[in-house]
Amino acid sequence: MSELILRLNAQAKSSVLSIQEYFTLAWNSLRFIFARPFYTQDVIQQMDEIGVKSLGIVLLTGLFTGMVLALQSSVQLQTFGASMYLGRLVAGSMIRELGPVLAGLMVAGRVGSGIAAQLGSMKVTEQIDALNTLGTDPIKKLATPRVLAALIMVPVLTIINDLVGIFGGNIIARFMVGLPTSLYWRTVWEQIASGGFTFRYIPNDFVQGLTKPLVFGAIISITACFFGLRTTGGTEGVGSATTKTVVTSSILILIVDYFLTQLLLSVLQSP
């Protein structure tokens, strides 16, 4: 019995220590964005890796999500004779929810796993130790450029995802529901305007739709760096770090999305 308690105690201590290390890494990664030396070249390279190379997968996800959303909704809306509101429904769902979450999940799968595998390999082949011995802080050199690039590129990918998704809805509205394109886009704008504005000109839907990917970008990159930098146990450890990164960041995205939505809805009350 006492052995069980000791084991549980050790497990609890280890978990608390891991959470502490996660937040320390997050704080240092963000703090070093404003500290010299700036690894600008590394940031640009990571923006290419995270943003440009994820474009294909995000375009496909956005297009087909928008199309299937319009297709499913049109059946329901036709029942009530409300097909003209298809644009509102697709735009609201894509900008506020599906765009950020799907882009986040796609980036977590493609980029998060890549970062964890790369840093994990560097860890097990002593390249992280080599950086340390060469007088370079590995967090500043490796984590900060990735976190900064994700903070910039995940919102950009989300905007593209939203646009392509709404365009996909337009295709279904025009060719399968028979809704005029002008009416579709007018209802899209009505949806955006109906949510109210922040600082008079920024639609609240945009604030909500861009706050989320910013947070998701931080979650994906920090989680990937966290598991990558603490990899042990050779190639098996690298595989394990990759899996943990994708699972943890995906779950965190879904949980944080709920609380963030509640927070943003209470802060951005429509007039």
Binding site: E126, Q127, D129, A130, T133, D137
Partner: peptide, 19 residues
């Protein structure tokens, strides 16, 4: 400590070159 390490050079078992 990073500054102190600049006075030292280290050669790792597997060379640890940045691949």
């Amino acid at each position: 400590a990073l500054k102190v390490r600049q006075k030292m050079g280290m050669v790792f078992q597997g060379a640890a070159l940045f691949d």
